[in-house]
Simulated scan of single mutants.
Amino acid sequence: MDDIIQIDKNIVVFLNNLGTDQWDPFWLGITNQFNWSPLFILVLFLVVKAYGWKRGGFMIFVLILLVAFSDQFTNLIKNSVQRLRPNNDTEIKHLLRISKNPQGFSFMSGHATTSTFFSVFVILLLRDKYKYIYFILIWPLVFAYSRLYLGVHFPIDILVGVIIGFTLANIYYFFFKKADKKLFT
Rank of each mutant, 00 (worst) to 15 (best):
P140A: 09
L95P: 01
I133Y: 08
L66C: 01
Y130A: 05
R83Q: 04
R55I: 00
G57C: 02
Y145N: 12
R127S: 11
F118A: 02
I92N: 07
Y145Q: 13
L124C: 06
L95N: 11
E91K: 14
Y172W: 15
A169D: 04
L150V: 01
F105D: 01
S70F: 00
Q82E: 08
Q82R: 11
Y130C: 03
L150W: 04
G110P: 07
Y132M: 02
R83T: 02
K129V: 05
L148W: 11
T90Q: 06
T90V: 12
D89H: 05
R55Y: 03
V120Q: 09
L95D: 05
L150T: 11
L63Y: 02
R97D: 01
I156S: 06
V67A: 12
G165I: 13
F73K: 02
G165E: 14
K100T: 10
S115P: 05
F154M: 03
S115H: 10
S99R: 15
L150P: 06
S109E: 10
D157I: 12
A68K: 01
T90P: 13
I136Q: 09
S109A: 14
R147W: 13
L65T: 04
I77N: 00
L76R: 01
L148G: 09
F61T: 02
L65E: 05
I77Q: 03
Y149G: 12
R83G: 04
H111Y: 10
Y172P: 05
F135D: 05
